[in-house]
Design a protein around this nucleic acid. Structure first.
Lengths: 150, 150
DNA sequence: AACTCCTTGTTGACTAGGAAACTAAATCGA
DNA sequence: TCGATTTAGTTTCCTAGTCAACAAGGAGTT
């Protein structure tokens, strides 16, 4: 075949299609809790790490420091996250969830569970396991911490 | 387990991780041709359809009319796409690739092939086929033309 | 101490896209 | 044929991110 490949000939195309759909639907779900997908991700990461500086969070979420800074600001405005000055280092800050923020975590987590079930529930158990396995393989082989240049 | 699900417990999370990495790497590749991923997608769609109005392209690419309008403008500025007034309908336009634009298609397609190979080449043939199959299933069951609300 | 270099976090300029308002033209119905 | 509705495309405003410049503080060296 000398002909030019179609968009749909590439696995990456379908990947993006599905990934976008999953995120879009999840976005719709969490919007009821007045939260975005990025905000959920931020809060869930923080839940494991708090209190933690923005820099660590940026690394974990593979976003730039700038993005984290703005994301944190939005979450503080919503009263879900709090920022405290570090004592040892006067440049540094520590982020934590507020009580209100922490209370949201189980609710959002359950929406995430549901979203995954909604989407991947159509697969057989075996298919689902295979998919997870493949995604792991791809992530590991590529060393996907992803690549925020910052 | 009464505990709260981790981000990494969800297939959607890994999906987005891999999808982003694929797109990011592809973006890097096509940037050498001074083109973005969206622009490639636009041009490749147009290649099959030209001459075609923006509205059809919006549908195919599942983007809003506004986004297409701007994308077309950028591509015209680069001399890769041309716009002609329709004769039958004075509101409508037809988009086509320019000679220069058409000449880029095989080059970009080959970069897309390469990107897919780079990423999914680590999979066994069977794994790759299974992945494609699963993505198809997910797309079809969900009727993923995606959902540009516009 | 003073100088240099590194690190932390914020900011501003820029980009891409969505939502909705808008303009112009076509179509439909009386 | 004229008004109402629909359709095609553009434009404006908004959000969310990157990138690069920056200020301020820490760390190491002499």
């Amino acid at each position: 075949m000398t002909s030019v490949a179609k968009l749909t000939d590439h696995t990456g195309y379908w990947m993006r299609m599905v990934s976008n759909a999953v995120s879009q639907e999840f976005s719709r779900k969490v919007s009821c809790e007045d939260v975005t997908v990025a905000e959920w991700s931020f809060m869930r990461s923080l839940y494991d790490l708090e209190p933690t500086p923005p820099s660590i969070l940026a690394e974990r979420m593979t976003m730039t420091k700038g993005a984290i800074s703005k994301l944190a600001e939005r979450l503080m405005a919503k009263g879900l996250v709090a920022k405290a000055q570090s004592r040892e280092d006067r440049r540094a800050h520590n982020l934590s969830l507020t009580t209100k923020g922490r209370a949201k975590i189980p609710v959002l987590a359950s929406l995430a569970d549901q979203n995954d079930a909604d989407f991947f529930g159509v697969l057989t158990k075996e298919e689902h396991e295979t998919l997870d396995h493949i995604l792991r393989v791809l992530t590991e082989r590529r060393d996907l911490k992803a690549t925020p240049v910052d």
